[in-house]
Design a binder for these strands. Structure first.
Lengths: 236, 236
DNA sequence: CCTTGATGGATTGTTGAACAACCATTACGC
DNA sequence: GCGTAATGGTTGTTCAACAATCCATCAAGG
């Protein structure tokens, strides 16, 4: 059977299938807005006018509304009936709630370290290395991105697609809370050594210890974010 | 200042605000379809035609599409580009993934039992009592509903709105997997005693023990569901 | 001066129709 | 039998229109 597609090749092709799923205009619009919102282009509280944005992006109101529905479900925008779409202002209870979720999910995933395949554990360490490289270059925005990858990789230790998606959304929402954090270096630098320590515990398969370290880590991060929000003034 | 609204009264009124948020047609349509799908009115694999459903419900295609977007994000429907909206067929990997998520979230929440306020712990026990009452009446569909409330209450021990919503969605999706389970009594009866035991551990604040019991509980439930799927034949 | 009530403009909510793009199937030719 | 072209039906997207709602403004009244 020369010239036939072997099962292995077929499998490797099937693995690349997600790349070629056609994506609707609404989803592309949502993707574009998602990055803009996370980058902070639209400050919390901004109203996203249907007409203005639709005109700017060259899509119809209906398509734009479909995109908004997607973003609202990710909590990257909020929908107020008959008033429109807004970039949410996260208040202190939102920050606390997000960190409760993270402690639960990331902590639980970290406990799975021993059971996780080596490449997933390596991904955790790789994200830490990325952060350290970026710190060397004093690129603190890249540090933040690497830090989020680190936490995404921690969540991936659970080995569940749904947990992965959950983490993506939670971290995207958290970026809105970071809006109040102006001094990137002061926030991120102290955590880098702790990231490294957690990564090493994970790689060693010492999940319980990693979880403990992570729990206190997240508690401290939450406190700092709350303090920043206090200073920033989050009057709704 | 007699006759003025005090701060306390204002706060209590503000607490009731969720009741008066107007809800759009698209969301009402989504809610209606959600219950129908979870009830099993549309068997997995059914295509939900835009025109047919729009006509049946008396809403326009655009509005219906907005509703579909909501359901797709909850994974209660899947969207295949240029082909339409389908009720998903959960395969074995989906079931496993859902149970991985549940072990993580419910387990982690159970560990918070000691820290949770008494009324939340009581809600766990109340759900078990509901299930027992329904079993007395041999109403096994009600037992299933109460069982899902039990797990929802377990998740609520984490004290996070986002975890609550996550649990709602996960359990709704799981109902699709239950489609393969025809014999309700045989599936649910053996778990009732274990539910009771877990509830008592939770009420006693013995979170770690509750988590261990829950973990093995969920593992067994997963095995049974997988076996049922095997028998049912989940050929895509 | 403050509150209440009414007016008008702007935005969203929803609909219906239209056309293009696409998928699945049928029918055809070899 | 197999590859190819035509076909019908469905979705993807846009547009225009109207109703419903909100917001700001201003007038009237105590």
């Amino acid at each position: 059977m020369t010239g036939t597609i072997s099962d292995e090749i077929a499998a490797s092709l099937a693995a690349g299938r997600p790349e070629l799923v056609a994506v609707s205009t609404a989803e592309r619009v949502a993707g574009l807005l998602r990055t803009r919102i996370m980058e902070g282009l639209f400050p919390p509280g901004t109203r996203l006018s249907e007409e203005a944005l639709g005109h700017a992006l060259g899509v119809s109101r209906n398509t734009l509304r479909e995109a908004f529905r997607l973003l609202c479900h990710e909590r990257l925008t909020v929908h107020e009936m008959n008033r429109g779409i807004f970039v949410p202002k996260l208040d202190r209870s939102d920050v606390s709630d997000l960190y409760r979720l993270r402690r639960l999910v990331e902590g639980g995933a970290a406990r799975c370290a021993a059971a996780a395949p080596p490449e997933r554990r390596a991904a955790v360490a790789a994200a830490v290395t990325d952060a350290e490289d970026a710190a060397q270059r004093a690129d603190w925005l890249a540090v933040r991105t690497a830090d989020l990858h680190f936490h995404q990789a921690l969540g991936a230790l659970a080995g569940s697609d749904r947990v992965d998606e959950l983490m993506r959304r939670a971290l995207a929402e958290l970026r809105l809370a970071f809006y109040a954090m102006t001094d990137l270096e002061r926030f991120h630098r102290p955590f880098m050594a702790r990231n490294r320590a957690i990564a090493e515990l994970v790689c060693a398969g010492r999940g319980d210890e990693a979880e403990r370290a992570l729990t206190s880590y997240l508690a401290d991060a939450e406190d700092q974010l709350l303090a920043a929000h206090e200073a920033f003034g989050t009057t709704g």
